[in-house]
């Protein structure tokens, strides 16, 4: 006989503002290898079809299922229920994003505006592309470093773990720094430190980050935010313009 789990889930539908946010409890029998994501689907299927939450890949790749699970912003599809000894799982939507309903939030809008603001795309060195010429090979360390930064799935956990980002919605957050770092690493990109300074060298960028390291602690992809942000901050500080 496996144990009973108790799910305490935040409920609110912005389309029905007359019903104030409340917490609803569900009981569920635990199965082996059960993730929070599996549990939520069972609840929706068997107990309450009105429960809203997101998922696509159920494999930690799409970043849609992020939510606050027992106080930690993380991915529901990668969180095993067996780690909670008392069998109680409290679920809240990610703070800092627009609420769609219950556990579902709109991270897309935020991510898109960050990308646009940070110009998170490749600015190639020469625009004239000769399709007959051989591609310039890239050093494998560089390719690996870029690949590492590209592992970000835009789940939003870093933003929801960061007191700075919560208090100031113009702050770019760790996901934004990671995007900038990704293109700053790329030898095909034509931008210099100076250009990146203009993008993140202000209070909404690296100099606004208070090094609270929530991003480092909770990024489900274990990106090295602590190292990356310190590196960016030093680099940008050393670009000729200051003391």
């Amino acid at each position: 006989m496996s144990r009973q789990l108790t799910f305490k889930i935040f409920r609110y539908d912005p389309l029905q503002p007359e019903i104030k946010p409340y917490t609803q409890e569900y009981q569920l029998e635990e199965a082996s290898g059960m993730t929070v994501f599996i549990a939520l689907n069972l609840i929706r299927e068997k107990q309450d079809p009105s429960l809203q939450f997101d998922f696509v890949c159920r494999a930690g790749i799409c970043g849609s299922c992020a939510m606050v699970i027992n106080g930690v912003p993380t991915l529901a599809c990668r969180t095993l229920t067996k780690q909670y000894e008392d069998g109680i799982v409290t679920l809240l939507p990610l703070p800092g994003f627009g609420l769609i309903g219950d556990l579902s939030v709109d991270t897309g809008k935020f991510m898109r505006s960050i990308s646009e603001r940070l110009q998170a795309w490749l600015e190639p060195k020469d625009h004239e592309v000769d399709i007959h010429s051989l591609e310039i090979p890239m050093e494998s360390e560089e390719a690996e470093a870029i690949y590492e930064a590209d592992r970000c799935i835009e789940c939003g956990c870093c933003v929801s773990s960061c007191a700075t980002a919560q208090m100031r919605d113009t702050f770019v957050g760790a996901v934004g720094f990671n995007k900038v770092a990704r293109f700053a690493l790329d030898s095909r990109d034509s931008r210099e430190v100076e250009d990146f300074y203009h993008i993140i060298g202000d209070e909404d960028g690296v100099f606004g980050c208070m090094t609270l390291l929530g991003c480092q602690d909770n990024c489900p992809k274990d990106l090295n935010h602590q190292g990356q942000i310190a590196y960016l901050r030093r680099k940008i500080s050393m670009s000729d313009r200051i003391i």
């Binding site: 606050v68 106080g71 930690v72 912003p73 809240l92 703070p95 929801s160 773990s161 007191a163 919560q166 208090m167 100031r168 208070m210 609270l212 390291l213 929530g214 602690d217």
Partner: peptide, 20 residues
């Protein structure tokens, strides 16, 4: 911002936020 901070340290309790 104070309100958000207070709320945030409850929903996502973290050592670093408390230290700050």
């Amino acid at each position: 911002q104070w309100k958000i901070l207070k709320e945030f340290s409850k929903t996502v309790p973290q050592r670093e936020t408390n230290l700050w």
